[in-house]
């Protein structure tokens, strides 16, 4: 038998470090969008006022309008058989801007630090949770206005300051956290490319 004089040396293959550029390209615009939402809060709230007015008209057949650039909408109601037009100012505490802007910034942070999950998964999970937050926040205000129109200040209090307010938003945030976990955080990124 001829013995080989060649020594075989096994070199452990090293996995190249993941390319973080795709994540940076995704994180930066998301962060910019989040900051924009927070900085342009008044304009965002104006948009919410317009949306709420439209929803009051289409869902409850209640005339509503936003006559200026301020985040104020007027809706038609009846007081003693006489039509009146109360106004509602969409303030910071009832606006979704802080939740959505904050969620966008948190997503940008996750894209950079939680490289275990794919970019697409994090973005989709973020989009879903931000949409839910926006929908619930808007629904809260729409239902509060409708409750006010029907039952006066008591109705507004029930919807905005008790059941509809803290309970609904806390429950929504809890639900969104639970939803974001499997969809955004537990998905596995491919070992190369999408880091």
């Amino acid at each position: 038998m001829i013995e080989s004089s060649v020594e075989i040396v096994i070199v452990e293959a090293r996995t190249p470090p993941p390319d973080v550029r795709p994540r940076l390209w995704a994180a930066v615009p998301v962060a910019v969008l989040g900051v924009a939402v927070l900085l342009a809060a008044e304009r965002f709230r104006h948009g919410e006022a317009v949306l709420i007015a439209r929803l009051l008209e289409h869902l409850f057949s209640r005339a509503a309008t936003v006559p200026s650039a301020a985040p104020v909408f007027y809706y038609e109601s009846m007081a003693g058989g006489v039509p009146v037009w109360p106004s509602v100012l969409v303030t910071g505490p009832v606006s979704a801007s802080w939740f959505m802007g904050g969620a966008l910034l948190a997503t940008a942070l996750m894209l950079l630090v939680w490289r275990r999950a794919p970019v697409a998964g994090l973005l989709v999970a973020s989009l879903v949770t931000i949409t839910i937050l926006g929908v619930v926040s808007t629904a809260r205000t729409v239902l509060s206005v409708e409750a006010t129109a029907r039952w006066g200040e008591t109705g507004f209090g029930w919807m905005m300051h008790t059941v509809g307010g803290p309970a609904l938003m806390v429950a929504t945030l809890c639900f969104c956290s639970l939803l974001f976990t499997p969809g955004g955080l537990l998905a596995v990124a491919r070992p190369t490319g999408d880091a």
């Binding site: 606006s95 904050g102 429950a171 945030l173 809890c174 639900f175 956290s177 639970l178």
Partner: peptide, 22 residues
């Protein structure tokens, strides 16, 4: 103060989620 109010909701909501999960 919308920032503190938002943060309160977030901390309570995520605490609740963590509690429920575990």
């Amino acid at each position: 103060m919308p920032v503190l109010e938002t943060l309160s909701h977030v901390v309570i909501g995520t605490s609740m989620a963590y509690f429920l999960l575990l």
